[in-house]
Design a protein around this nucleic acid. Structure first.
Lengths: 329, 329
DNA sequence: TACAGTCATAGATAATTATCTATGGCGCTT
DNA sequence: AAGCGCCATAGATAATTATCTATGACTGTA
């Protein structure tokens, strides 16, 4: 027996027209509704009939009524069209950023503040699925090179023409000592006072260490005793147990202040900022774009970071220009 | 915002190709599988991408992988294609007559035998839905005129060029009297003996009455006393209660013999046959066709009606010729 | 570096589709 | 019978699609 239906030629347009004819019971009416001429609709029905291989409608008392096969076809049409419509809605949501997925790569230090942005965003956009990757600077640089994430947060953005960076949040670095530290409360504390102290430092690649080093260099100071520890958390614990002093992001201290305190060293806190980093040519998932917009607003509203807001605004603008209307593959 | 998807241009062919690319992960492989060239498949993907308005695949480590939107599209494709396939299977079944619906109109008398054909047919074809209409000859003629049913069963088919009739089953008319009738067992019983009897008759249009009348006329007999009763069943009960004699289809007596018996009148039983009647130009639903085929076989196998089988065979043949391969609307 | 495999793009063409206008047939209603 | 509304068919055309061949770009691997 011949193939039941020439499915390859089946078009959603045909199904749309057909479904409307069944609903209205009139070819002429459907033609008007769809802004077509009557013969066009007749033709479409004929073609659909050929595709199906069976009569699908007949005329009965002046109305067009579906045959038995036609009824089944009508059900099919409704079914398929509504499913396609659901997909279309999904697309809309996806494009608005209200649905979908993106991933963000954070250097270790940033994980103490990003949740304060990601949390509310997820709350507001439950359909968006965010992957957060955390690692030290070198690990994040590797991920960045491999294009593994949509957005990155660095203190010192990689230098690259293809990169857009927005310094969105200040990241003050402070001197931290144990709870019962003898330098607490000392006014006008200088590094000179501390030259006998041991300093606990992150690994050389780390931005925190880099910034601290740069400050030391410019001040012509050399540390007497240092020890390298790989994680901020471990450093905090080590400081609390009296193993030495450290320079850490104030956010870390604010987040879990147990056993440590900030010391009022002159010239501190060191200024530093976190940057959103995205590749200029990368087509950002709408959800990621929406996140950045969300952050922009939050910075002004809750973080009192107008400079940060401006930087993010500029980033978004640049992204829009890099990808105007056409969406290259 | 622009429309999410240009659904009117969406083709099942595109979805088929796309789904295969996602499955194989390779444009080239899909091209070979579908007997196309590689650029053709690339093109199709591009077009689909334009229809959707979003990138749907990307290349990753030499493989083609769907984007997030692409994955949703793939699911959609699978879904839609499988649904279309279900419909296609339905079409096959419909065409084979194994599924669907047809209606058959019976004159009253025929309802005593048709169940013996329809029952087994329904048993063998549970997916076929049969509507049985029953009425007297005039009612059936009206339905016939209005093209309301697919098949009719008449004793005397309407005379009409556009009609195909197959005398498929003999319908012997017999004289019936009450259980304790004094004519029972009388040999060589003639109408002359019965001229004082009252005869209970169906309405003038009925084929039973028509046949009986014709026989009376040809024999030059006139009935003394008659009474008209509209239903066979009512006549049978009247006969049983001694109100008179009647001429009925032997099938009626065989079906419910309580209180009545066949009387051995000379010249009886009168010969008569039921006819399947279909309109020549009517496109018979495949299920109706299948029913006729079923009946054809049953007549030979169980009813010992070789003439009937031949008549039905001829009917089927004529139907096939009237509707060769093309199926006009 | 040269080669092989995989895609994308360009350019060309045949086929198919989408639509329109013009007309004719049918069934009802004046 | 004339007119009206509704649908089918014919004929024409513009637009779109389906595909092909040829060619170039990119990515690894020998």
């Amino acid at each position: 027996m011949a193939l039941a239906m020439k499915i390859r030629q089946l078009t959603f347009r045909l199904l749309q027209v057909y479904a409307d004819v069944v609903r209205t019971g009139s070819i002429t009416v459907t033609a008007n509704r769809l802004h077509l001429t009557q013969p066009t609709v007749s033709q479409q029905l004929k073609r659909l009939r050929e595709i199906v291989g069976e009569p699908i409608v007949r005329q009965e008392e002046g109305r067009i009524v579906p045959t038995e096969v036609g009824q089944a076809l009508y059900q099919l049409s409704q079914d398929l069209l509504s499913r396609a419509d659901v997909f279309s809605q999904y697309l809309d949501e996806y494009n608005s950023g209200g649905r979908g997925h993106f991933s963000i790569g954070l250097v270790n230090t940033a994980q103490y503040v990003l949740p304060r942005l990601l949390g509310p965003f997820s709350q507001a956009n439950p359909q968006v699925d965010v992957t957060v990757e955390v690692g030290n600077r070198q690990q994040m640089l590797n991920r960045f090179e491999r294009h593994e994430d949509d957005i990155y947060v660095f203190s010192h953005p990689p230098i690259d023409d293809a990169v857009l960076a927005a310094p969105f949040l200040s990241n003050p670095l402070v001197l931290v000592g144990p709870e019962n530290c003898r330098w607490a409360g000392v006014e006008g504390l200088t590094m000179n006072d501390l030259k006998e102290e041991r300093f606990l430092l992150r690994e050389p690649g780390s931005a925190t260490r880099h910034t601290f080093n740069a400050w030391l260099d410019s001040a012509g100071i050399e540390l007497r005793s240092t020890q390298q520890i790989a994680s901020n958390e471990a450093i905090r614990l080590a400081v609390a147990s009296g193993m030495g002093l450290a320079v850490l992001s104030r956010h870390i201290v604010a987040d879990s202040p147990k056993g440590v305190q900030e010391l009022p060293l002159q010239g501190f806190p060191l200024k530093s900022r976190w940057h959103f980093v995205v590749r200029r040519e990368r087509r950002l998932p709408p959800a990621a774009y929406r996140f950045l917009s969300f952050v922009q607003e939050a910075l002004a509203r809750e973080f009192e970071e107008p400079e940060g807001e401006a930087a993010v605004a500029e980033l978004l603008k640049a992204l829009n220009q890099a990808r105007p209307l056409s969406k290259p593959q």
